[in-house]
């Protein structure tokens, strides 16, 4: 999506943004101005920068992500949202000549430390991608892939994990009789929920979602958003999204990125109703993209 079309989309959705915010504030019973004490951060970024060769993907990001909440990262295209998200589980390692500076800690451990256990990191920090990317295997094998890597061999234990994960991703009822069927036979929305189930099966603490609904129709998007609302009771969710309405609907905290920098990070209602930076205001009101 180009910055321009992102702006257009944002502008179209603006009419309903204040309503969404107001409704969420009512739900939270929160018009109180006093900020509640925040829990200990689970992801902690301090002056974190990531370079592709000489080009900075993100620059000097300092922000804390809190457990059992949904943190949305918004901003125009090419602003480093996905780069930052993929830095948390080090998926950027696959790109040659990547270099990190500063500190990015998950649960107190700097993930760019040489001694970090990448396998454990990625099982603690699951990921859902932009395009549904199930393996060309059966539903069961897709979900059981992660647990099997962890060494779970017992059939009934696997069966149980698969069932739990599919239930958590609200897919179980639709596929319970088709567990042996190829994942590719299902719809895009079902495939994306399968990918969420697959990520949940490794029992992560954190779930990263990189524009998980951008390839889906509105109905499927709605289901994924409901699902995110349910999942945040147990997981920490970080979601990158182009869709500002979606950010307003699902997130508790929102970070606005622009040109690789973190412009503003605050509660979602503050970002959307009363941002402190001009750039943020311009972006969320659709004046610039």
């Amino acid at each position: 999506m180009t910055p321009y079309s992102a702006t257009q989309q944002g502008a179209e959705q603006l009419t309903s943004l204040p309503r969404i915010i107001a409704r969420r504030q009512e739900q939270a019973g929160a018009h109180d101005k006093t900020p509640r004490p925040r829990p200990q951060a689970i992801v902690n970024s301090e002056g974190f920068s990531l370079y592709y060769g000489d080009k900075a993907g993100v620059k000097d990001i300092t922000m804390d992500i809190y457990p059992r909440s949904v943190t949305a990262i918004i901003g125009p295209s090419g602003c480093g949202k996905s780069t930052f998200l993929r830095s948390i589980n080090r998926m950027n390692d696959l790109i040659p000549h990547v270099r990190a500076e500063g500190r990015l800690a998950v649960n107190g451990q700097d993930v760019y430390d040489k001694r970090v256990n990448l396998v454990n990191l990625r099982q603690e920090v699951g990921m859902v991608f932009q395009k549904p990317n199930p393996f060309p295997k059966s539903i069961f094998d897709n979900v059981a892939y992660g647990p099997k890597l962890q060494g779970v061999k017992n059939k009934s234990e696997l069966q149980q994990i698969v069932e739990e994960s599919l239930k958590a991703a609200v897919l179980w009822e639709e596929v319970r009789d088709d567990l042996k069927k190829s994942a590719l036979a299902f719809s895009g929305g079902q495939q994306q929920r399968l990918c969420i189930a697959r990520a949940l099966a490794t029992k992560p603490q954190i779930l990263l979602m990189d524009e998980p609904c951008s390839a889906l129709d509105p109905v499927a998007t709605g289901r994924i958003e409901d699902l995110i609302g349910q999942l945040k009771a147990k997981y920490t969710i970080v979601i990158v999204t182009h869709n500002m309405q979606q950010a307003a609907r699902v997130s508790d905290m929102a970070a606005f990125f622009c040109l690789g920098e973190l412009i503003e990070y605050d509660t979602t209602s503050k970002i959307f109703s009363n941002p402190s930076k001009k750039a943020t205001e311009d972006y969320v009101t659709g004046r610039f993209g």
Partner: peptide, 17 residues
């Protein structure tokens, strides 16, 4: 393509796996 490999890496698989 990258999608399948990324999915696998993100679940904690090594290159070999």
């Amino acid at each position: 393509g990258r999608e399948l490999r990324e999915a696998s890496y993100s679940l904690g698989a090594t290159r070999m796996e």
